[in-house]
Nucleic acid binder design. Structure first.
Lengths: 205, 205
DNA sequence: CAAAAGAGAGGGAGCGTTCGTTTTTAAAAA
DNA sequence: TTTTTAAAAACGAACGCTCCCTCTCTTTTG
């Protein structure tokens, strides 16, 4: 009879996940201790273990949360924006605005490393990346059909290169945060604009 | 009087570093134990600790080794090849051939994660990446001066984008090894060719 | 033969996790 | 409303285990 609301339980879970995310981004998965997470969450070990079975369970929950956040992004934009150029612009803006969150970037990098040896995380990440890539690829393919983009290039590969623009900058900025985003983006625009659309190759920037 | 040759000592050190690299690429830095490394190197803990003061010391030594390997690469190519296009081709070939080494790629990813929380590794990596970027930037700048490339774009940013081509593919292939390199490279070539050189924008691939 | 090199059991610390206890909760009883 | 009550939730000391590293002893070396 004395049972707290589901919302309360959910809030506690969130509390742990957020605390874990903070710790993980600062010290990495395997260097943060349960004590670290407990202290950050202001909860005792006993309480934390009511909500998660193990440390690995917390990692996985945190990954799934980040996954849910990111996946719908490209889908939402490509489905509501019909103009190719402005859709790509929006996608770029959405992706690169994630660079403003250093904790999120640090977690992403930590995640890539963890995925190497942890099949559970690896599979989560694989599905996530495959989803994003499939959506983007389909969008580019339609643009090619409409004659807006060079049809000689493999749409899937183009998506992969576009994703690399983003992943690569995350990595480089994680080592040297002084790297400016804007000049980097203008190079991308020049590359995209000059190659994909059959128009004059010089557009300024 | 009973002292083994310096070459012998050096060989033992190498033996440990290589064993560590194997373990690290399979299980990650913090999940491989000293016992793992000892077993892989076929040496006892006592022997290993004659050559390295700590586990962290082994990690750092391994990083420095990889660093030395990679740094001279771009420098060698840009200094000996005067033709811009063929130099870029060679650089691309050199970089992407590193993808053939899955252990090396896994180590790189592990390293990026480790650099987040480990200042010693971070600094190593930062210097390394800055060196490569500086060499590539200087090369591109000269090409711009010669009028071979669009001078409106920031050479340093172009270098960073080019590095992203490589880093991004390492990451994507670490999660999904079935990704093909060749179609990816042909997209890069289209992007580079169409934008940087002032010539007809359509070249096939 | 004496010093260097290697072996490997074990110390000490710290980790993830458990579990007996205490506190809080919300419904039932007064 | 106020009091009671029993289950849920939280606490935190401590367990067992594993890890890094040391230290003594043995083997190898020139």
């Amino acid at each position: 009879m004395p049972k707290v609301t589901d919302a309360y339980l959910e809030a506690r879970k969130q509390q742990v996940i957020e605390a874990a995310a903070t710790c993980f981004s600062q010290r990495g998965f395997h260097q943060t201790t349960m004590q670290d997470i407990c202290k950050q969450a202001e909860l005792s070990p006993g309480a934390v273990y009511r909500y998660f079975e193990s440390k690995e369970d917390i990692i996985a929950a945190m990954v799934d949360e980040r996954r849910r956040e990111g996946v719908g992004l490209v889908e939402a934009i490509t489905s509501r924006t019909e103009d190719t150029l402005s859709a790509l612009d929006e996608i770029a803006k959405a992706f690169f605005s994630r660079l403003e969150d250093p904790q999120g970037c640090a977690l992403d990098i930590e995640l890539w490393a963890e995925a190497q040896a942890n099949p559970r995380i690896r599979e989560s990440l694989r599905v996530d990346m495959a989803d994003v890539n499939a959506t983007l690829t389909e969008f580019l393919r339609r643009a090619q059909e409409r004659g807006e983009m060079n049809p000689a290039l493999d749409a899937k590969s183009i998506s992969q290169v576009m994703e690399s623009f983003f992943y690569g900058l995350i990595l480089q900025r994680s080592v040297d945060p002084s790297i400016e985003v804007w000049p980097y983006v203008s190079v991308i625009k020049a590359m995209m604009g000059g190659t994909f659309w059959q128009q004059r190759s010089q557009e300024g920037e």
